[in-house]
Design a protein around this nucleic acid. Structure first.
Length: 236
DNA sequence: ACAAGGATCCTCT
DNA sequence: GAGGATCCTTGTT
């Protein structure tokens, strides 16, 4: 119980390795994918230099077509069109005029869904992340990517990444063998939304230092105690 | 063509 | 804990 915070997240060599998640991984129930993405490694290569930065995914949120908080719930628009297409693609949009949000498209083609990536534990390229974040003083590792806007800044994710593959070359999601058991995953309400505010569709690794610090943490429960977190959680 | 608002973050009190 | 930054997307004239 609660061992995830002390377990090493780095490969012994300090290099990035692992196998890319397949399109089939993403082509499933959004809530399932959101949970299983915890512990996976996100690598982004700089558009100009090719230099990689990477981090372990420690916090996600699920958004799907029957969910009023999902951009796609009121039909296809130019912004959210990518969510109706193939799974395994990045959906990137801008919020509050300043912050990019990175999502992974889920579900079979034609049914919209996406997982918002909310926090990362930096694994590679921390110095580059510090430069991009432009924070005062000497930010701690946990401050670099503990929020959805922050992690996009740290990794250099921009609107132009909308529609990019998650199997490279610019964006790559890896399974490096870091195991996450169901008992380590907490579920809570999602952050910053005004619809379906009670649905427990935010997921994070229990005890991890790199998650976002939000009031929703207080309402978190182990996923194992919640049973099926299906779309039925939310009525007509 | 325009107005309103948003799946956020930072700084300062 | 409050307020401002900042601009794209959307729905409406």
């Amino acid at each position: 119980m609660g061992s995830s915070s002390t377990r090493s997240s780095r490969n012994a060599s300090g290099k990035l390795k692992g196998s890319a998640l397949s399109q089939e991984f993403y082509q499933r129930d959004t809530i399932q994918v959101a949970q299983e993405l915890l512990g996976k490694v996100l690598v982004v290569r700089d558009s100009r230099t090719g230099e990689p930065t990477a981090g372990r995914i420690v916090e996600t949120e699920a958004y799907h077509g029957e969910d009023p908080a999902c951009h796609a719930s009121r039909g296809e628009t130019p912004r959210c069109a990518i969510m109706f297409g193939q799974p395994g693609i990045a959906y990137v949009y801008l919020i509050y005029g300043m912050y990019e949000m990175l999502n992974f498209v889920t579900e079979p083609q034609g049914y919209p869904g996406a997982v918002l990536i909310r926090a990362l534990e930096p694994l590679f390229g921390e110095e580059q992340m510090r430069k991009r974040r432009k924070l005062k003083g000497t930010p701690k590792s946990r401050e670099l990517a503990n929020g959805p806007g922050k992690l996009c800044r740290a990794l250099g994710i921009r609107l132009k990444h909308n529609g990019a593959s998650l199997q490279g070359p610019e964006i790559l999601v890896l399974d490096d063998g870091f195991g996450v058991s169901r008992s380590e995953i907490l579920a809570s309400p999602r952050v910053g939304i005004s619809q379906a505010v009670d649905a427990m569709w935010r997921f994070y690794l229990q005890g991890n230092d790199h998650i976002s610090r939000v009031k929703e943490n207080l309402r978190a429960k182990p996923v194992a105690e919640l049973g099926e977190l299906r779309y039925a959680a939310f009525g007509p």
